[in-house]
């Protein structure tokens, strides 16, 4: 550690800062007691600190002496408009926070017991082709479908509009890289909820204040193709009353890039 000797000016400034902090009531504990002892012992310092305390009282008095409750000289609608804007912003932020919490909870549930869990047999087709995906029906969310877009080769994307006419997109891709390219240039007003199933990635891109994000994920998920269960449920075998399982279907041959 390099110690530097303080100049007289710096020492004085530090001392004055201590007096000001004491006058403002910003000092606590041992430091406040030490300064109080110093002020009691040094009349000059005590007088300066007393002047600062008087200043603090006058500054606080200014606040009371200037209540500013007269009508401001600007447009009367302005304050109301700003209040409405701030209210909307806070509401949207609360909705987004709620949606994020709901999403996290949903992902947790899915991971533990839902369609993402490895053992349930409800998986997407291994190395799936996005071309097999049909356009998800999001009309239950009040979204109107506008058509399909091709933002990046190998990616499928559908455009919808919400009630305010804002664009909402569903994107399905194979591979993280393709999805990353498809989501590049996302508008700052929008959030992308993205999830992955093996090689297939899906994303729902919507305005940040949309309250239906979790529900939208469900609907998109429902539209994704699923393979037959790898292990079929155990069924009673004919005749002898014992149980047996049929042979699992062999997985489709694919290189995982056949979008």
């Amino acid at each position: 550690m390099i110690l530097r000797r303080l100049s007289c000016h710096e020492v004085r400034e530090s001392e004055e800062a201590g007096f000001v902090a004491w006058a403002d009531g910003a000092l606590r504990g041992r430091r406040a007691r030490r300064l109080a002892r110093r002020l009691a012992a040094d009349p000059g310092a005590g007088a300066r600190a007393a002047a600062y305390r008087e200043q603090s009282e006058m500054l606080a008095g200014l606040r009371l002496a200037l209540p500013m409750n007269d009508t401001p000289d600007f447009h009367p609608e302005l304050v109301g408009a700003v209040a409405r804007r701030l209210q909307r912003v806070r509401r949207a932020q609360r909705a987004a926070a709620g949606a994020a919490v709901a999403l996290l909870a949903l992902c947790g549930v899915w991971w533990a017991a839902g369609p993402f869990s490895p053992g349930d047999g409800g998986r997407l087709v291994a190395g799936a082709s996005a071309s097999a995906v049909t356009r998800p029906d999001l009309s239950a969310l009040g979204l109107s479908a506008e058509g399909e877009e091709s933002p990046v080769p190998g990616v499928r994307a559908w455009l919808y509009r919400d009630a305010q006419g804002r664009p909402v997109r569903v994107v399905v891709a194979v591979g993280e890289e393709a999805m990353g390219r498809a989501l590049a240039g996302l508008p700052r007003t929008h959030v992308a909820v993205q999830w992955r199933r093996g090689a297939v990635s899906a994303a729902l891109v919507a305005p940040g204040d949309s309250p239906w994000l979790a529900q939208g994920m469900h609907l998109v998920e429902a539209a994704l193709p699923r393979e037959e269960p790898a292990v079929a449920p155990v069924v009673p075998a004919a005749g002898d009353g014992r149980t047996s399982a049929p042979e699992p279907a062999s997985p489709p041959e694919t290189d995982g890039r056949s979008l």
């Binding site: 401001p72 600007f74 700003v82 804007r85 912003v89 932020q93 987004a96």
Partner: peptide
């Protein structure tokens, strides 16, 4: 108390409120 006269002060506050109205966005938490 910063600018010293009521007209300039209200000018300043009005400009600040207009800026809040125009620039506040949902992705920037207040």
């Amino acid at each position: 108390l910063l600018v010293g006269n009521p007209d300039d002060a209200d000018d300043l506050v009005q400009e600040a409120l207009v800026r809040v109205l125009v620039r506040t966005r949902v992705w920037r938490p207040v």
